[in-house]
Nucleic acid binder design. Structure first.
Lengths: 242, 242
DNA sequence: GGAAAAGCAAGAGCGGTGCTCTCGTTGTTG
DNA sequence: CAACAACGAGAGCACCGCTCTTGCTTTTCC
Protein backbone atom coordinates (compact mmCIF):
# COMPACT_ATOMS: atom_id res chain seq x y z
CA UNK A 1 0.00 0.00 0.00
CA UNK A 2 2.49 2.58 1.11
CA UNK A 3 5.35 1.06 -0.84
CA UNK A 4 6.54 3.40 -3.55
CA UNK A 5 7.11 1.23 -6.53
CA UNK A 6 8.89 3.06 -9.28
CA UNK A 7 10.67 6.29 -9.88
CA UNK A 8 7.63 7.62 -11.66
CA UNK A 9 5.32 7.04 -8.74
CA UNK A 10 7.86 8.48 -6.35
CA UNK A 11 8.24 11.59 -8.48
CA UNK A 12 4.50 11.99 -8.68
CA UNK A 13 4.01 12.08 -4.93
CA UNK A 14 6.92 14.46 -4.56
CA UNK A 15 5.67 16.86 -7.19
CA UNK A 16 2.16 16.69 -5.78
CA UNK A 17 3.51 17.57 -2.36
CA UNK A 18 5.60 20.40 -3.78
CA UNK A 19 2.59 21.86 -5.54
CA UNK A 20 0.51 21.75 -2.39
CA UNK A 21 3.34 23.24 -0.39
CA UNK A 22 3.82 26.16 -2.74
CA UNK A 23 0.09 26.65 -3.01
CA UNK A 24 -0.22 26.71 0.75
CA UNK A 25 2.57 29.28 0.87
CA UNK A 26 0.70 31.53 -1.52
CA UNK A 27 -2.55 30.89 0.30
CA UNK A 28 -1.05 31.96 3.60
CA UNK A 29 0.58 34.99 2.02
CA UNK A 30 -2.16 36.29 -0.21
CA UNK A 31 -5.36 34.49 0.57
CA UNK A 32 -7.44 32.01 -1.37
CA UNK A 33 -8.74 34.59 -3.83
CA UNK A 34 -5.24 35.46 -5.00
CA UNK A 35 -4.04 31.89 -5.29
CA UNK A 36 -3.05 31.32 -8.91
CA UNK A 37 -2.22 28.04 -10.59
CA UNK A 38 0.09 29.77 -12.99
CA UNK A 39 1.97 31.46 -10.20
CA UNK A 40 2.41 28.15 -8.42
CA UNK A 41 3.71 26.55 -11.60
CA UNK A 42 5.98 29.52 -12.25
CA UNK A 43 7.46 29.30 -8.78
CA UNK A 44 8.07 25.61 -9.27
CA UNK A 45 9.69 26.16 -12.66
CA UNK A 46 7.21 24.12 -14.57
CA UNK A 47 4.71 24.88 -17.28
CA UNK A 48 1.26 25.73 -16.01
CA UNK A 49 -0.28 23.07 -18.20
CA UNK A 50 1.85 20.39 -16.54
CA UNK A 51 0.23 21.19 -13.25
CA UNK A 52 -3.05 19.85 -14.53
CA UNK A 53 -1.54 16.38 -14.51
CA UNK A 54 -1.69 16.57 -10.74
CA UNK A 55 -4.80 18.62 -10.04
CA UNK A 56 -7.53 18.64 -12.65
CA UNK A 57 -8.65 22.14 -11.72
CA UNK A 58 -8.00 25.01 -9.39
CA UNK A 59 -10.94 23.99 -7.28
CA UNK A 60 -9.43 20.55 -6.81
CA UNK A 61 -6.24 22.11 -5.56
CA UNK A 62 -8.25 24.24 -3.18
CA UNK A 63 -10.15 21.20 -2.03
CA UNK A 64 -6.88 19.45 -1.25
CA UNK A 65 -5.79 22.49 0.75
CA UNK A 66 -9.13 22.51 2.54
CA UNK A 67 -8.69 18.90 3.58
CA UNK A 68 -5.17 19.62 4.76
CA UNK A 69 -6.40 22.60 6.74
CA UNK A 70 -9.13 20.54 8.37
CA UNK A 71 -6.56 17.94 9.27
CA UNK A 72 -4.22 20.55 10.67
CA UNK A 73 -6.82 22.15 12.88
CA UNK A 74 -8.06 18.73 13.87
CA UNK A 75 -4.57 17.64 14.78
CA UNK A 76 -4.10 20.74 16.90
CA UNK A 77 -7.29 19.96 18.76
CA UNK A 78 -6.36 16.32 19.24
CA UNK A 79 -2.97 17.31 20.54
CA UNK A 80 -4.54 19.57 23.12
CA UNK A 81 -6.94 16.80 24.02
CA UNK A 82 -4.11 14.37 24.64
CA UNK A 83 -2.03 16.94 26.50
CA UNK A 84 -4.80 17.62 28.99
CA UNK A 85 -5.54 13.99 29.74
CA UNK A 86 -6.53 13.70 33.36
CA UNK A 87 -7.09 17.40 33.90
CA UNK A 88 -10.41 18.86 35.03
CA UNK A 89 -12.98 18.58 32.22
CA UNK A 90 -13.58 22.32 32.09
CA UNK A 91 -9.87 22.94 31.71
CA UNK A 92 -9.64 20.31 29.01
CA UNK A 93 -12.50 21.99 27.18
CA UNK A 94 -10.79 25.33 27.40
CA UNK A 95 -7.54 23.77 26.29
CA UNK A 96 -9.05 22.28 23.16
CA UNK A 97 -10.86 25.53 22.37
CA UNK A 98 -7.61 27.38 22.86
CA UNK A 99 -5.85 25.08 20.45
CA UNK A 100 -8.51 25.69 17.82
CA UNK A 101 -8.33 29.41 18.34
CA UNK A 102 -4.55 29.59 18.35
CA UNK A 103 -4.32 27.63 15.14
CA UNK A 104 -6.87 29.91 13.52
CA UNK A 105 -5.02 33.04 14.59
CA UNK A 106 -1.76 31.62 13.28
CA UNK A 107 -3.29 30.53 9.97
CA UNK A 108 -6.00 33.06 9.21
CA UNK A 109 -6.28 32.39 5.50
CA UNK A 110 -6.39 28.64 5.89
CA UNK A 111 -8.96 29.11 8.62
CA UNK A 112 -11.01 31.29 6.34
CA UNK A 113 -10.82 28.64 3.68
CA UNK A 114 -12.53 26.08 5.86
CA UNK A 115 -14.70 28.08 8.23
CA UNK A 116 -15.35 31.15 6.11
CA UNK A 117 -17.65 31.46 3.16
CA UNK A 118 -17.27 28.46 0.88
CA UNK A 119 -15.28 29.76 -2.08
CA UNK A 120 -15.96 27.40 -4.97
CA UNK A 121 -19.41 26.47 -6.14
CA UNK A 122 -20.23 24.64 -2.96
CA UNK A 123 -17.82 21.92 -3.98
CA UNK A 124 -16.15 19.19 -2.00
CA UNK A 125 -18.96 17.74 0.02
CA UNK A 126 -17.88 14.21 0.77
CA UNK A 127 -14.11 14.12 0.74
CA UNK A 128 -13.78 16.75 3.39
CA UNK A 129 -16.29 15.53 5.90
CA UNK A 130 -14.04 13.00 7.61
CA UNK A 131 -11.28 15.53 8.12
CA UNK A 132 -13.76 18.22 9.05
CA UNK A 133 -15.10 16.15 11.91
CA UNK A 134 -11.80 15.88 13.73
CA UNK A 135 -12.04 19.22 15.47
CA UNK A 136 -15.55 18.58 16.66
CA UNK A 137 -14.67 15.08 17.82
CA UNK A 138 -12.09 16.46 20.21
CA UNK A 139 -14.70 18.63 21.86
CA UNK A 140 -17.00 15.66 22.05
CA UNK A 141 -14.26 13.56 23.59
CA UNK A 142 -13.87 16.01 26.46
CA UNK A 143 -17.52 15.69 27.31
CA UNK A 144 -17.56 11.96 26.83
CA UNK A 145 -14.60 11.49 29.14
CA UNK A 146 -16.28 13.68 31.74
CA UNK A 147 -19.37 11.55 31.48
CA UNK A 148 -17.29 8.40 31.83
CA UNK A 149 -15.68 9.79 34.97
CA UNK A 150 -19.04 10.76 36.40
CA UNK A 151 -18.29 14.47 36.56
CA UNK A 152 -20.62 15.63 33.82
CA UNK A 153 -23.36 17.88 35.11
CA UNK A 154 -26.60 18.74 33.37
CA UNK A 155 -26.37 21.35 30.63
CA UNK A 156 -27.69 24.83 31.24
CA UNK A 157 -30.74 26.02 29.43
CA UNK A 158 -34.38 25.24 29.15
CA UNK A 159 -35.88 21.85 28.32
CA UNK A 160 -35.59 20.96 24.68
CA UNK A 161 -38.43 21.56 22.31
CA UNK A 162 -39.79 18.31 20.94
CA UNK A 163 -38.55 18.68 17.41
CA UNK A 164 -35.06 19.54 18.50
CA UNK A 165 -35.03 16.67 20.92
CA UNK A 166 -36.02 14.11 18.30
CA UNK A 167 -33.52 15.49 15.85
CA UNK A 168 -30.56 15.46 18.19
CA UNK A 169 -31.56 12.15 19.74
CA UNK A 170 -31.01 10.61 16.33
CA UNK A 171 -27.66 12.31 15.99
CA UNK A 172 -26.58 11.37 19.49
CA UNK A 173 -27.59 7.75 19.23
CA UNK A 174 -25.29 7.15 16.30
CA UNK A 175 -22.45 9.31 17.52
CA UNK A 176 -22.37 9.44 21.30
CA UNK A 177 -25.17 7.22 22.65
CA UNK A 178 -23.90 7.55 26.19
CA UNK A 179 -24.64 11.28 26.34
CA UNK A 180 -28.05 12.66 27.30
CA UNK A 181 -29.87 14.41 24.51
CA UNK A 182 -29.83 17.85 26.14
CA UNK A 183 -26.08 17.53 26.47
CA UNK A 184 -25.82 16.72 22.79
CA UNK A 185 -27.86 19.79 21.97
CA UNK A 186 -25.74 22.03 24.16
CA UNK A 187 -22.61 20.49 22.70
CA UNK A 188 -23.57 21.14 19.12
CA UNK A 189 -24.51 24.70 19.95
CA UNK A 190 -21.30 25.25 21.86
CA UNK A 191 -19.34 23.81 18.97
CA UNK A 192 -20.78 26.41 16.61
CA UNK A 193 -20.40 29.16 19.17
CA UNK A 194 -16.72 28.45 19.70
CA UNK A 195 -16.15 29.01 16.02
CA UNK A 196 -18.26 32.13 16.17
CA UNK A 197 -15.83 33.55 18.67
CA UNK A 198 -12.85 32.44 16.62
CA UNK A 199 -14.28 33.73 13.36
CA UNK A 200 -15.07 37.14 14.78
CA UNK A 201 -11.53 37.44 16.01
CA UNK A 202 -9.86 36.16 12.85
CA UNK A 203 -12.13 37.99 10.44
CA UNK A 204 -11.71 41.30 12.19
CA UNK A 205 -15.14 41.76 13.69
CA UNK A 206 -13.54 42.35 17.08
CA UNK A 207 -11.35 45.16 15.75
CA UNK A 208 -11.90 48.15 17.94
CA UNK A 209 -14.25 46.17 20.16
CA UNK A 210 -12.25 43.62 22.06
CA UNK A 211 -8.63 44.31 22.92
CA UNK A 212 -7.52 41.45 25.11
CA UNK A 213 -8.58 38.78 22.68
CA UNK A 214 -6.86 35.83 24.31
CA UNK A 215 -8.21 36.31 27.82
CA UNK A 216 -11.61 37.17 26.45
CA UNK A 217 -11.67 33.98 24.45
CA UNK A 218 -10.68 31.91 27.47
CA UNK A 219 -13.39 33.56 29.49
CA UNK A 220 -16.00 32.80 26.86
CA UNK A 221 -14.78 29.26 26.38
CA UNK A 222 -15.11 28.70 30.12
CA UNK A 223 -18.69 29.90 30.00
CA UNK A 224 -19.38 27.49 27.16
CA UNK A 225 -17.88 24.66 29.17
CA UNK A 226 -20.29 25.41 31.96
CA UNK A 227 -23.10 25.51 29.47
CA UNK A 228 -22.54 21.95 28.31
CA UNK A 229 -22.29 20.73 31.89
CA UNK A 230 -18.57 20.79 32.56
CA UNK A 231 -18.26 22.26 36.03
CA UNK A 232 -15.26 24.49 36.52
CA UNK A 233 -12.60 23.31 38.92
CA UNK A 234 -13.77 24.63 42.26
CA UNK A 235 -10.30 25.30 43.58
CA UNK A 236 -9.03 27.72 41.00
CA UNK A 237 -10.37 31.23 41.35
CA UNK A 238 -9.69 32.10 37.77
CA UNK A 239 -8.48 29.95 34.94
CA UNK A 240 -4.73 30.10 34.47
CA UNK A 241 -3.69 32.32 31.60
CA UNK A 242 -1.94 30.80 28.58
CA UNK B 1 -28.40 67.91 -0.16
CA UNK B 2 -30.76 65.32 -1.50
CA UNK B 3 -31.96 67.51 -4.35
CA UNK B 4 -30.94 66.09 -7.68
CA UNK B 5 -29.81 69.04 -9.66
CA UNK B 6 -29.27 68.22 -13.28
CA UNK B 7 -29.98 65.46 -15.71
CA UNK B 8 -26.38 64.36 -15.47
CA UNK B 9 -26.48 63.93 -11.74
CA UNK B 10 -29.77 62.13 -11.94
CA UNK B 11 -28.43 59.77 -14.56
CA UNK B 12 -25.38 59.09 -12.46
CA UNK B 13 -27.35 57.98 -9.44
CA UNK B 14 -29.58 55.84 -11.60
CA UNK B 15 -26.72 54.13 -13.37
CA UNK B 16 -24.92 53.61 -10.08
CA UNK B 17 -28.01 51.97 -8.65
CA UNK B 18 -28.45 49.81 -11.73
CA UNK B 19 -24.86 48.61 -11.50
CA UNK B 20 -25.25 47.72 -7.86
CA UNK B 21 -28.53 45.99 -8.54
CA UNK B 22 -27.12 43.84 -11.31
CA UNK B 23 -24.01 43.14 -9.27
CA UNK B 24 -26.12 42.07 -6.33
CA UNK B 25 -28.05 39.80 -8.65
CA UNK B 26 -24.88 38.10 -9.80
CA UNK B 27 -23.60 37.97 -6.26
CA UNK B 28 -26.71 36.20 -5.07
CA UNK B 29 -26.64 33.83 -8.02
CA UNK B 30 -22.98 32.94 -8.26
CA UNK B 31 -21.19 34.21 -5.21
CA UNK B 32 -18.65 36.93 -4.69
CA UNK B 33 -15.83 35.01 -6.31
CA UNK B 34 -17.66 34.78 -9.61
CA UNK B 35 -18.81 38.38 -9.68
CA UNK B 36 -17.35 39.96 -12.81
CA UNK B 37 -17.30 43.61 -13.74
CA UNK B 38 -17.39 42.77 -17.41
CA UNK B 39 -20.42 40.55 -16.97
CA UNK B 40 -22.23 43.31 -15.11
CA UNK B 41 -21.42 45.78 -17.84
CA UNK B 42 -22.46 43.29 -20.51
CA UNK B 43 -25.78 42.71 -18.84
CA UNK B 44 -26.36 46.44 -18.64
CA UNK B 45 -25.44 46.93 -22.29
CA UNK B 46 -22.53 49.20 -21.62
CA UNK B 47 -18.81 48.98 -22.23
CA UNK B 48 -16.87 47.52 -19.35
CA UNK B 49 -14.59 50.53 -19.30
CA UNK B 50 -17.54 52.84 -18.74
CA UNK B 51 -18.28 51.07 -15.51
CA UNK B 52 -15.08 52.44 -14.04
CA UNK B 53 -16.61 55.91 -14.05
CA UNK B 54 -18.87 54.69 -11.27
CA UNK B 55 -16.69 52.30 -9.33
CA UNK B 56 -12.94 52.75 -9.54
CA UNK B 57 -12.29 49.06 -9.05
CA UNK B 58 -13.94 45.73 -8.47
CA UNK B 59 -13.08 45.93 -4.81
CA UNK B 60 -14.92 49.23 -4.54
CA UNK B 61 -18.01 47.66 -6.03
CA UNK B 62 -17.70 44.83 -3.56
CA UNK B 63 -17.28 47.29 -0.75
CA UNK B 64 -20.48 49.02 -1.78
CA UNK B 65 -22.26 45.68 -1.76
CA UNK B 66 -20.79 44.92 1.65
CA UNK B 67 -22.15 48.16 3.06
CA UNK B 68 -25.54 47.44 1.53
CA UNK B 69 -25.52 43.97 3.02
CA UNK B 70 -24.62 45.29 6.44
CA UNK B 71 -27.43 47.79 6.16
CA UNK B 72 -29.88 45.12 5.06
CA UNK B 73 -29.08 42.78 7.90
CA UNK B 74 -29.06 45.71 10.30
CA UNK B 75 -32.44 46.83 9.06
CA UNK B 76 -33.83 43.34 9.54
CA UNK B 77 -32.59 43.33 13.11
CA UNK B 78 -33.96 46.79 13.82
CA UNK B 79 -37.30 45.80 12.40
CA UNK B 80 -37.48 42.82 14.70
CA UNK B 81 -36.44 45.05 17.57
CA UNK B 82 -39.26 47.47 16.89
CA UNK B 83 -41.78 44.72 16.31
CA UNK B 84 -41.13 43.16 19.71
CA UNK B 85 -41.35 46.40 21.64
CA UNK B 86 -42.86 45.65 25.01
CA UNK B 87 -42.43 41.89 24.81
CA UNK B 88 -40.43 39.91 27.34
CA UNK B 89 -36.72 40.66 26.95
CA UNK B 90 -35.80 37.06 26.26
CA UNK B 91 -38.39 36.90 23.51
CA UNK B 92 -37.12 40.14 22.05
CA UNK B 93 -33.60 38.73 22.06
CA UNK B 94 -34.77 35.61 20.29
CA UNK B 95 -36.73 37.71 17.84
CA UNK B 96 -33.75 39.80 16.87
CA UNK B 97 -31.54 36.72 16.58
CA UNK B 98 -34.18 35.10 14.44
CA UNK B 99 -34.27 38.10 12.14
CA UNK B 100 -30.51 37.96 11.70
CA UNK B 101 -30.62 34.26 11.02
CA UNK B 102 -33.53 34.42 8.62
CA UNK B 103 -31.90 37.15 6.61
CA UNK B 104 -28.70 35.16 6.42
CA UNK B 105 -30.49 32.02 5.27
CA UNK B 106 -32.32 34.03 2.61
CA UNK B 107 -29.18 35.80 1.41
CA UNK B 108 -26.35 33.31 1.89
CA UNK B 109 -23.88 34.89 -0.48
CA UNK B 110 -24.40 38.38 0.83
CA UNK B 111 -24.08 37.00 4.33
CA UNK B 112 -20.85 35.31 3.38
CA UNK B 113 -19.59 38.57 1.99
CA UNK B 114 -19.89 40.31 5.32
CA UNK B 115 -19.49 37.57 7.91
CA UNK B 116 -17.35 35.12 5.97
CA UNK B 117 -13.70 35.37 5.18
CA UNK B 118 -12.86 38.90 4.03
CA UNK B 119 -12.42 38.60 0.26
CA UNK B 120 -10.40 41.63 -0.85
CA UNK B 121 -7.04 42.52 0.63
CA UNK B 122 -8.52 43.37 3.97
CA UNK B 123 -10.04 46.47 2.43
CA UNK B 124 -12.86 48.68 3.54
CA UNK B 125 -12.08 49.34 7.16
CA UNK B 126 -13.75 52.61 7.95
CA UNK B 127 -16.66 53.03 5.58
CA UNK B 128 -18.29 49.83 6.66
CA UNK B 129 -18.03 50.13 10.41
CA UNK B 130 -21.09 52.30 10.91
CA UNK B 131 -23.28 49.97 8.89
CA UNK B 132 -21.69 46.93 10.44
CA UNK B 133 -22.63 48.06 13.92
CA UNK B 134 -26.34 48.15 13.28
CA UNK B 135 -26.91 44.46 13.84
CA UNK B 136 -24.99 44.46 17.07
CA UNK B 137 -26.73 47.59 18.28
CA UNK B 138 -30.10 45.88 18.08
CA UNK B 139 -28.90 43.14 20.35
CA UNK B 140 -27.52 45.74 22.71
CA UNK B 141 -30.80 47.61 22.67
CA UNK B 142 -32.67 44.55 23.90
CA UNK B 143 -30.40 44.30 26.90
CA UNK B 144 -30.41 48.03 27.54
CA UNK B 145 -34.20 48.13 27.50
CA UNK B 146 -34.31 45.20 29.90
CA UNK B 147 -31.94 47.04 32.19
CA UNK B 148 -34.06 50.17 31.96
CA UNK B 149 -37.15 48.18 32.90
CA UNK B 150 -35.36 46.57 35.81
CA UNK B 151 -35.69 43.04 34.51
CA UNK B 152 -32.07 42.41 33.66
CA UNK B 153 -30.54 39.66 35.75
CA UNK B 154 -26.85 38.97 36.25
CA UNK B 155 -25.09 37.20 33.41
CA UNK B 156 -24.12 33.58 33.80
CA UNK B 157 -20.49 32.63 34.07
CA UNK B 158 -17.57 33.10 36.34
CA UNK B 159 -16.22 36.43 37.52
CA UNK B 160 -14.25 38.25 34.89
CA UNK B 161 -10.49 38.03 34.77
CA UNK B 162 -8.88 41.39 35.45
CA UNK B 163 -7.60 42.06 31.97
CA UNK B 164 -10.92 41.26 30.36
CA UNK B 165 -12.70 43.40 32.88
CA UNK B 166 -10.55 46.45 32.21
CA UNK B 167 -10.84 45.98 28.51
CA UNK B 168 -14.60 45.69 28.38
CA UNK B 169 -15.11 48.37 30.99
CA UNK B 170 -13.54 50.78 28.55
CA UNK B 171 -15.76 49.55 25.75
CA UNK B 172 -18.88 49.64 27.89
CA UNK B 173 -18.27 53.10 29.27
CA UNK B 174 -18.30 54.64 25.83
CA UNK B 175 -21.04 52.52 24.38
CA UNK B 176 -23.46 51.43 27.10
CA UNK B 177 -22.34 52.96 30.41
CA UNK B 178 -25.49 51.83 32.14
CA UNK B 179 -24.68 48.15 31.76
CA UNK B 180 -22.51 46.26 34.25
CA UNK B 181 -19.18 45.13 32.89
CA UNK B 182 -19.91 41.39 33.19
CA UNK B 183 -23.06 41.96 31.18
CA UNK B 184 -21.03 43.72 28.50
CA UNK B 185 -18.66 40.79 28.39
CA UNK B 186 -21.46 38.27 28.12
CA UNK B 187 -23.10 40.40 25.47
CA UNK B 188 -20.05 40.62 23.27
CA UNK B 189 -19.51 36.89 23.56
CA UNK B 190 -23.16 36.16 22.81
CA UNK B 191 -22.99 38.47 19.82
CA UNK B 192 -20.16 36.46 18.33
CA UNK B 193 -21.81 33.18 19.26
CA UNK B 194 -25.07 34.07 17.53
CA UNK B 195 -23.15 34.53 14.32
CA UNK B 196 -21.32 31.30 14.96
CA UNK B 197 -24.64 29.50 14.91
CA UNK B 198 -25.75 31.39 11.82
CA UNK B 199 -22.50 30.85 9.97
CA UNK B 200 -22.46 27.13 10.65
CA UNK B 201 -25.94 26.84 9.26
CA UNK B 202 -25.38 29.05 6.22
CA UNK B 203 -21.94 27.70 5.40
CA UNK B 204 -23.06 24.10 5.56
CA UNK B 205 -21.30 22.95 8.70
CA UNK B 206 -24.60 21.66 10.04
CA UNK B 207 -25.20 19.50 6.98
CA UNK B 208 -25.86 16.01 8.18
CA UNK B 209 -25.63 17.13 11.78
CA UNK B 210 -28.61 19.28 12.59
CA UNK B 211 -31.87 18.74 10.79
CA UNK B 212 -34.38 21.02 12.43
CA UNK B 213 -32.26 24.13 11.98
CA UNK B 214 -34.90 26.70 12.87
CA UNK B 215 -36.01 25.22 16.19
CA UNK B 216 -32.44 24.42 17.06
CA UNK B 217 -31.44 27.99 16.46
CA UNK B 218 -34.27 29.29 18.57
CA UNK B 219 -33.29 26.93 21.34
CA UNK B 220 -29.68 28.09 21.22
CA UNK B 221 -30.66 31.75 21.03
CA UNK B 222 -32.80 31.29 24.11
CA UNK B 223 -29.83 29.84 25.96
CA UNK B 224 -27.75 32.81 24.91
CA UNK B 225 -30.43 35.17 26.19
CA UNK B 226 -30.23 33.49 29.56
CA UNK B 227 -26.49 33.79 29.46
CA UNK B 228 -26.55 37.56 29.18
CA UNK B 229 -29.09 37.83 31.98
CA UNK B 230 -32.39 37.94 30.14
CA UNK B 231 -34.66 35.66 32.13
CA UNK B 232 -37.11 33.69 30.01
CA UNK B 233 -40.78 34.44 30.48
CA UNK B 234 -41.77 32.18 33.34
CA UNK B 235 -45.22 31.50 32.01
CA UNK B 236 -44.40 29.95 28.70
CA UNK B 237 -43.24 26.37 28.88
CA UNK B 238 -41.44 26.52 25.61
CA UNK B 239 -40.83 29.48 23.35
CA UNK B 240 -43.47 29.81 20.67
CA UNK B 241 -42.31 28.66 17.29
CA UNK B 242 -42.19 31.27 14.52
C1' DG C 1 -24.73 83.10 -26.32
C1' DG C 2 -20.47 80.96 -27.04
C1' DA C 3 -16.11 79.14 -25.51
C1' DA C 4 -13.75 76.45 -22.07
C1' DA C 5 -14.05 72.76 -18.86
C1' DA C 6 -15.60 68.67 -17.06
C1' DG C 7 -18.15 64.31 -17.29
C1' DC C 8 -19.14 60.43 -19.99
C1' DA C 9 -19.27 56.20 -23.32
C1' DA C 10 -16.80 53.33 -26.23
C1' DG C 11 -12.97 50.96 -28.26
C1' DA C 12 -8.37 49.08 -28.30
C1' DG C 13 -5.05 47.09 -25.73
C1' DC C 14 -2.00 45.15 -21.80
C1' DG C 15 -0.91 41.59 -18.69
C1' DG C 16 -2.96 38.19 -16.17
C1' DT C 17 -6.00 34.06 -15.34
C1' DG C 18 -8.09 29.00 -15.79
C1' DC C 19 -8.14 25.55 -18.92
C1' DT C 20 -7.56 22.62 -23.40
C1' DC C 21 -5.11 20.52 -27.08
C1' DT C 22 -1.29 18.87 -29.37
C1' DC C 23 3.21 17.09 -29.74
C1' DG C 24 7.54 15.25 -28.56
C1' DT C 25 9.82 12.63 -24.63
C1' DT C 26 10.38 9.27 -21.05
C1' DG C 27 9.46 5.65 -17.84
C1' DT C 28 6.73 1.24 -17.38
C1' DT C 29 5.30 -3.18 -18.82
C1' DG C 30 3.97 -7.17 -21.67
C1' DC D 1 12.18 -4.67 -27.78
C1' DA D 2 7.93 -2.77 -28.73
C1' DA D 3 3.53 -0.97 -27.24
C1' DC D 4 1.68 1.92 -23.98
C1' DA D 5 0.71 5.20 -20.61
C1' DA D 6 2.28 9.06 -18.09
C1' DC D 7 4.51 13.28 -18.51
C1' DG D 8 6.38 18.21 -19.68
C1' DA D 9 6.13 22.03 -22.61
C1' DG D 10 4.19 25.15 -25.80
C1' DA D 11 0.51 27.42 -28.26
C1' DG D 12 -3.84 29.04 -27.94
C1' DC D 13 -8.77 30.21 -26.39
C1' DA D 14 -11.89 32.87 -23.74
C1' DC D 15 -12.23 35.57 -19.97
C1' DC D 16 -10.76 38.79 -16.41
C1' DG D 17 -9.41 43.64 -14.13
C1' DC D 18 -7.75 47.74 -15.54
C1' DT D 19 -5.69 51.77 -18.42
C1' DC D 20 -5.45 54.92 -22.15
C1' DT D 21 -7.09 57.37 -25.90
C1' DT D 22 -10.67 59.28 -28.73
C1' DG D 23 -14.83 61.48 -29.65
C1' DC D 24 -19.22 63.38 -27.74
C1' DT D 25 -22.39 65.69 -24.51
C1' DT D 26 -23.47 68.31 -20.62
C1' DT D 27 -22.29 71.81 -17.50
C1' DT D 28 -20.01 76.04 -16.27
C1' DC D 29 -18.14 80.47 -16.74
C1' DC D 30 -17.02 84.83 -19.12
Amino acid sequence: MSVIRGARERARTEVTAAIKEEARRQLAAEGAARLSLRAVARELGMASSALYRYFPSRDDLLTALIIDAYDAVGAAAEEALAATEGAAPADRWIGVCRALRDWAVDHPHEYGLVYGSPVPGYAAPQDTVASAARGALSLIAVVRDARRDGVLGPPQGRPLAGEVRDDLAALGSELVPELPVPTVAALVAAWAQVFGLVSFEVFGQFNGVVGARGPFFDQSAAALAAQVGLAPADGAAVLPAK
